[in-house]
Amino acid sequence: MKVPVEITVNGTRHRSEVEPRLLLVHYLRDVLDLTGTHVGCETGLCGACTILLDGEAVKSCMMLAVQANVRAVETVEGLSVEGELDAVQRGFWEEHGLQCGFCTPGMLLSAHDLLRRSPQPTEEEIQRAIHGNLCRCTGYQTIVKAIQNAGDKMRAGKPSAASSSPSTRGRR
């Protein structure tokens, strides 16, 4: 038996009929075709599926799609505005906060959650904020630097170094 849900994803409202057992991450990936949110472990350990639910970081493999009914979800696909990387994405780019990139979407959204609560986090705060996100390239130190860089950019208000960044549109 399917049930109707209405979920706002990256600002767009979607109405769907879903199985009550469908995980939120599978709703995003398989129903909406937003494959930027990754399934790493499906047990809540790795954090690759981290999204923002009403602004707070949650692991979308630990939630059912029906639990997100009439709520707002933000995924990695919603971060860039008109193809321009946001402050957190640029911070990761400039500080080499990614290697293979698989954990990156979850890292980016955990970073957003942290920087919203704490605009100038200490190294320890950052480590705590991403302790639920595993990076198997083990580039944690550059990720910490990337989040500090992103915080600097956000506080400065405007993009800096990578403002000459090429558009992400049409690059696959």
Binding site: R29, L34, T35, G36, T37, H38, V39, T75, V76, E77, L79, S80, L85, Q89, F92, W93, E94, H96, L98, G101, F102, T104, P105, L108, A162, S165, P166, S167, T168, R171, R172
Partner: peptide
């Protein structure tokens, strides 16, 4: 010199194509 990786913008935008995608 510090060099920006060319593959990063798509990975950062969730446009990577991993096997599961």
């Amino acid at each position: 010199q510090k060099v920006l990786r060319k593959e990063d913008p798509r990975l950062l935008a969730g446009k990577g194509a991993y096997v599961d995608d």
